[in-house]
Design a protein around this nucleic acid. Structure first.
Length: 263
DNA sequence: ATGCCATCCACCGGATGA
């Protein structure tokens, strides 16, 4: 059985817990990276997640941000919390773990929540661009380790025109700016593989649909949740996709779980 | 140009999101 590695921006773990537990039970993913917990370390629902059969490591924050790594039957071992380069940055947006299976095989998995960057121009957009550079520095160090690694998360970057239902609607948005795209491309240029892009080179695959203006009903979405694979992980890629149906459920997140299957 | 909706916290409106 291939390994299913998922990234899922839950938009509030407390509000979304029934959906998350349902997803774990139904999809039986091996590894899940969560973003936008919107919960402090103390209020993360670890008891419920453990009861579902998952070990977890999390980096919470009250009200905003927050990321976690879950693994079925395994306790993810924390490697790094946050990105270096900006000590005053208090946002919980990066958590890197090592997941070792009973056979001794190790996979490095990071859950990341890249800043949105709106409104633009302004300090939030500047922060986004600095954060991408800090991520790129960490990504380069990971590649140098020559290990199987997955950088999974909400990148808040629409990388290509065909990754959005409407380039016109998003033209002024921070998610689609040339600087945002250049930052994302710099990761690919290092040697990371955009797994969904490999599987669906023609685009037209969405991972996010806004709550507003009937975006889900109109299928007006875009692709911003990405799984980047190191060369050793990319060699093991067998499939990738979006569990789109979860976006249509009661009290759904505005993102759908997005996944890769690795040999 | 704005609201459209949903989350959080903290008190029923404001900040944030994408």
């Amino acid at each position: 059985m291939p390994l299913k590695v998922v990234t899922y921006n839950v938009n509030g773990i407390k509000a979304r817990l029934p959906r998350v537990l349902e997803y774990l039970a139904e999809a039986q993913p091996d590894i899940v990276c969560l973003q936008e917990l919107k919960a402090s370390d103390e209020t993360f629902p670890i008891a419920e997640i453990e009861a579902a059969g998952y070990g977890a490591t999390w980096h919470g924050q009250k009200s905003w941000n927050g990321v976690a790594v879950l693994a079925r039957g395994i306790q993810p071992a924390e490697r790094q919390r946050g990105l270096s380069g900006e000590p005053e940055d208090e946002h919980s947006r990066y958590l890197e773990c090592a997941i070792t299976d009973p056979g001794g095989d190790e996979l490095i998995v990071a859950s990341l929540y890249l800043p949105n960057g709106n409104p633009r121009p302004g300090p939030k957009f500047d922060y986004k661009l600095r954060w991408i550079e800090r991520l790129a520095a960490r990504a380069r160090a990971l590649l140098a380790e020559e290990v199987p690694a997955v950088l999974a998360g909400d990148y808040n970057v629409i990388a290509n025109d065909d990754d959005s239902y409407s380039t016109r609607a998003m033209a002024e948005d921070a998610l689609m700016q040339p600087e945002s795209r250049a930052g994302y491309r710099s990761l690919l240029a290092q040697g990371w593989t955009d797994a969904l892009r490999t599987r669906y080179p023609g685009g037209g695959v969405w991972t996010f649909w806004d709550y507003q203006a009937g975006a889900w009903q109109r299928d007006a979405g875009f692709r911003i949740d990405h799984l980047l694979l190191s060369p050793m992980a990319a060699d093991r890629l067998v499939d990738a996709g979006v569990d789109k149906a979860y976006r249509g459920r009661e009290k759904a997140s505005d993102h759908a779980p997005t996944w890769v299957a690795l040999r």
